[in-house]
Design a protein around this nucleic acid. Structure first.
Length: 152
DNA sequence: GCCAACGTTGGC
DNA sequence: GCCAACGTTGGC
């Protein structure tokens, strides 16, 4: 069992959108970074735990808990010529971008980035490191436990 | 809006 | 394969 933090811009897709989504599930489309793709393609397993993180917004932070709810499969948006995630080098025979489905576990209170920064047990979290921009990052089991306690 | 940090591109 | 230029991310 592994733990992950996945960033989403709430103006694109927020925790409330996930609450309202069909089956409270969303395909994690639009990732166009190879390391993040590799995490989804090679390491994520059904049932892995996910921290749903709001980024690039007035109050960045963890907004909910979720679970990986599918195996990796090709991101359909790479084939959509009119969409912003179209990749001309990807074909259905040789897809370049893979994704997993993410299912809501629980909407939480917003746990702000500023609060995370104040917790010594979390100082090694990838997302808190200087210059980190990766949209999907692994979380240790100790970090996961610490964060769950913060939600009470 | 600013800017640091990082990833990608493309000329050589 | 190097590396400068450029584009993007994302907190502030």
């Amino acid at each position: 069992m592994a733990y992950w933090l996945m960033k989403s811009e709430p103006s694109e897709f927020s925790i409330d959108d996930l609450v309202k989504a069909k089956n409270q599930t969303v395909p994690w489309f639009g990732v166009r970074n190879y390391l993040a793709r590799n995490f989804m393609r090679d390491q994520m397993k059904l049932g892995d735990d996910v921290l749903f993180y709001h980024s690039s917004c007035p109050e960045p932070g963890i907004a909910g808990l979720a679970k990986v709810s599918s195996q990796a499969y090709p991101d359909p948006t790479q084939f959509d010529k009119k969409g912003k995630y179209f990749d001309p080098k990807a074909t259905p025979e040789t897809p370049r971008w893979m994704l997993v489905d993410v299912k809501l576990a629980k909407k939480t209170r917003l746990l702000p980035l500023a609060e995370l920064r104040n917790i010594p047990a979390l100082e090694e979290m990838v997302i808190l490191q200087r210059g980190n921009r990766l949209s999907i990052t692994p979380i240790s089991s100790a970090e996961w436990k610490t964060i769950l306690k913060l939600f009470g």
